[in-house]
């Protein structure tokens, strides 16, 4: 996946499978979390919790915008930016 590392995408795949309680197709950067995967707004807290645990980072929900949840690429980009010392994607 371009612009992020495989660990973030893998963690997102696992977190989404846990929260949505179903097997998911392989994610691509353009996969839409709401439209394609069936995420709903009440699952967002659960997803954030699962991602924090898996990636060992603290997400500041006050900084999050709805756009970060539009696609897999948008969310992994946001998560990578949260990771300390991680070189931002170019």
């Amino acid at each position: 996946m371009t612009g992020t590392d495989g660990a973030t995408t893998g963690a997102l795949q696992d977190a989404l499978a846990e929260v949505l309680n179903k097997d998911l197709p392989d994610l691509t950067p353009t996969t839409r979390l709401f439209g394609d995967l069936g995420l709903d707004s009440t699952s967002v807290i659960e997803l954030l919790m699962a991602l924090e645990d898996r990636l060992g980072l603290v997400i500041d929900p006050d900084e999050l915008t709805p756009e970060a949840f539009e696609t897999v690429g948008a969310l992994t980009g946001y998560l990578d930016a949260c990771r300390p010392g991680h070189e931002p994607a170019r």
Binding site: I45, L48, P61, L64, P66, F69
Partner: peptide, 11 residues
């Protein structure tokens, strides 16, 4: 608030 609930989808 609980974390993440301030997000507004499909506003």
């Amino acid at each position: 608030a609980l974390p993440g609930t301030g997000l507004s989808f499909s506003a």
